[in-house]
Every structure is written in C-alpha cells, then in structure tokens.
C-alpha cells in the first residue's frame, strides 16, 4: 500500500536541517500502525510527506502503486482528496459550517451534487453516532464529538489510508479511549490506519509501532 524508499528531507530555514535521513518503510493494506518519536524526531515531517502536504528531496514514495513525486499543487490536491483522510489533533473543522457540511466538504471537491453528498455525509455521521448532531456547529460540540465528526470527514471520500496526527492529543483520557476504539473499528473494516503520536497509551492500541529517532527508523515492534 505504502512504500517509502530512502526518503530524505532537509529544511532550509537559515541553517539546513536534515530532518529525514533515508527512511525506508513499507506499510501493507489494512495495517494499523503508529509512528512514535520524540518531538523533533521527524515524525510530523514524515506524516506530512505521507499526506502529500509536503515535498521530499530524495527517494521514492509510492501510494497504492502511484509514485508521489514532484506533483503540481492541483495534482496533489486531487490525490489528497481521493486517497487520504486526515484526522488532526485540533480537529480542524470549519467553524462556520455545521457537522454535516464539514463531513460533506471532501465530496464537494469531487463535484458531487449537494443532495447526494449530504446523503453520504449523513450516513457516515450516523455510523459514528452523530446523526442527531448533524445540524450543530462545531462550537456546540464536545471535543470527542468534534473528533468523531473529523473522523467521519476523513472517511467520507473512501480514501486508501487514514493519517491521524495525535488524534487524542486534545481529549481527556476517557474520550481518548472512545476515539481509539472508533479508529480500531474503522481499521477492522479494512481501512489502513497510520497514527502519529508520542503517547504510549495510544500506540499500545495499534498493532505495529514504528519508532523514529533523529530522522531514521529505529526498531519496529508488533503488539500482538
């Protein structure tokens, strides 16, 4: 599903900062993986590259057998839309849109009619138990609810992979457990799931932990 070959990334802000120093990684379809590392280890950069939010300097990144390299803004927008679902620590819902509209947004960029995309979005909200909250604005919802809306939004375009960046970082421990359960269920339905975290509680719930340190992959542990 995901193949990284010798990925290198250097930031040139003042003095060059070599963040990723040759990452080789293969993630199969349906895996439930967490990427762990201290801050500054390069895990966020790796996630951005996986999510086609950032470019890399050297190496090759294949997503579902497609080489993701040197894409134009427009091309990467299309790939992000069709292949990747994002879940962020700070939810990143659009504040002036209600839950339903937020979930339907990726479909808007696929030029699906309003009626149809609202229907699909409602289906996903229902799956996450938020049917009654469809017309609520983000600021009327709790953190856990917001994250569930964000998960619904990540799923709605039927992507190849879900990338979650500290999905429980802004939630209390009880809600964290709930959200992790949801992600686990989504994975059980066959969705490839990659979670970036520094929280051992979270990574323990995934099936494979990839440790990253100083821009290189360290040991990989299996949880089963």
């Amino acid at each position: 599903m995901i193949t990284l070959k010798n990925i290198n990334k250097t930031y040139n802000n003042g003095s060059p900062l070599h963040v990723l120093k040759g990452i080789d990684l293969i993630i199969e379809k349906g895996e439930f993986v967490s990427i762990m590392g201290a801050s500054g280890s390069g895990k966020s950069t790796l996630l951005n590259i996986l999510g086609i939010l950032d470019n890399y300097d050297d190496g090759e990144y294949y997503l579902n057998k497609v080489l993701i390299k040197n894409l134009t803004e427009t091309q990467s927008a299309v790939y992000r839309n069709k292949m990747i679902g994002f879940v962020f620590q700070s939810f990143n819902l659009i504040s002036f849109k209600n839950a339903l509209e937020n979930v339907a947004l990726p479909l808007y960029y696929q030029n699906i009619s309003r009626k149809k995309r609202n229907l699909i979005a409602m289906e996903y909200l229902d799956k996450l138990g938020l049917k009654d909250w469809a017309q609520h604005m983000p600021n009327e919802m709790s953190g856990g609810q917001k994250q569930r809306v964000a998960i619904a939004r990540a799923l709605v375009a039927k992507p190849q992979v879900i990338l979650a960046d500290e999905p429980t970082g802004a939630l209390d421990s009880k809600t964290s457990v709930e959200v992790m359960e949801i992600l686990k269920e989504v994975n059980a339905d066959g969705m490839t799931m990659i979670i970036v975290t520094h929280d051992p509680e979270v990574s323990r719930k995934t099936r494979k932990i990839i440790h990253i340190k100083d821009g290189v992959i360290g040991n990989i542990t299996n949880n089963d």
Binding site: G51, E73, A77, R80, K82, N92, I94, L105
Partner: peptide
C-alpha cells in the same frame, strides 16, 4: 486555517 483545511481535504488552488 480554513483554506489550509480545504486544501488538505483536496481543494485545488
């Protein structure tokens, strides 16, 4: 931030 979200969700430039 909104434009960033839109872009992440697949909005073309």
């Amino acid at each position: 931030k909104e434009f960033g979200i839109r872009k992440a969700l697949g909005a073309s430039p």
